[in-house]
């Protein structure tokens, strides 16, 4: 067997010329966005700028009216794939408000998320192996929930739910992680832990973080994309974009 050197790729996700209209309102307007396979990116912008809608498009929840979205080293269009297929292709998503299965235990939540076959038949006859147990334990440990595995997710505090959701994301082993406002409802200490975790994760995968908290963004220390009215207003280092007069006017100045 000959080993073939993996092709060097410059972008993992490529969104180009995408527009979405809701009842005549253009939420995303000719948006283009690229991220590399091991990159951390912060996305900021005023309320209603289209940040969440952008994630909806990438994850297949919302279909754009025009434009292309491709993913992977052999670029594959995501537009014809279902949400579940996109998720299986390696796109993980964390929602703005924590969405865990509240009626199920922490470990059940994690087991659901563990990367594995998803077809009904395979899941029906799935049996937990020692390896799975170890993975669940390690994930719980990573987010500080090791003592809460048997508890129902609904009993956790808001911050703990956020952590559980992050652990579920990690369990999926995604190659692109979309994180919507992770710091909401977290304590100062938890925010620091979160930034550290996101920076660490971005060493092995692409991570897009939407956040309003500027301190949080600063600590991420990465390239920033500013969205406004559905398109990119500015892009660059945080210092660079915060000096941009337009950004100051629409976002920071308020």
């Amino acid at each position: 067997m000959t080993t073939i050197a993996p092709p060097r790729i410059t972008s993992l996700l490529e969104v180009s010329g995408v527009s979405v209209t809701f009842d005549g309102f253009r939420a995303i307007n000719n948006l283009s966005f690229t991220i590399g396979p091991q990159e951390l990116r912060a996305v900021i912008g005023p309320n209603g700028a289209g940040k969440t809608t952008f994630m909806d498009i990438v994850t297949g929840k919302t279909r754009p009216d025009e434009g292309t979205v491709t993913f992977g080293e052999v670029p594959r269009s995501l537009l014809r794939m279902s949400e579940a297929q996109i998720a299986r292709a390696g796109v993980g998503r964390k929602f703005q408000r924590p969405t865990v299965f509240e009626d199920q235990s922490v470990s059940e939540n994690l087991i659901l998320a563990l990367k594995a076959q998803r077809a009904p038949w395979r899941v029906l006859f799935w049996r937990e192996t020692g390896q799975d147990r170890a993975k669940v334990a390690a994930l719980a440990e990573q987010v500080g929930l090791q003592d809460h595995l048997a508890r129902k997710a609904g009993e956790l505090s808001h911050g703990q739910k956020q952590w559980l959701e992050i652990a579920m994301l990690l369990a999926q082993e995604p190659r692109l992680l979309l994180v919507d406002e992770p710091a909401a409802g977290m304590s100062f200490l938890e925010r620091e832990q979160t930034t550290a975790l996101l920076v660490e994760l971005a060493k092995t995968r692409a991570v897009v973080v939407v956040e309003h908290d500027m301190e949080f963004i600063r600590r991420l220390n990465c390239k920033v994309t500013v969205l406004h009215e559905g398109s990119v207003l500015a892009e660059g280092s945080l210092d660079h974009v915060t000096k941009n007069p337009q950004v100051i006017e629409v976002y920071l100045g308020r």
């Binding site: 929840k61 279902s82 949400e83 579940a84 998720a87 969405t99 299965f101 509240e102 009626d103 659901l112």
Partner: peptide
């Protein structure tokens, strides 16, 4: 409880 969430975990709901 939340079928959309399950879709985003990759399950063909």
């Amino acid at each position: 409880d939340d079928e959309q969430r399950l879709r985003f975990l990759g399950y063909p709901v």
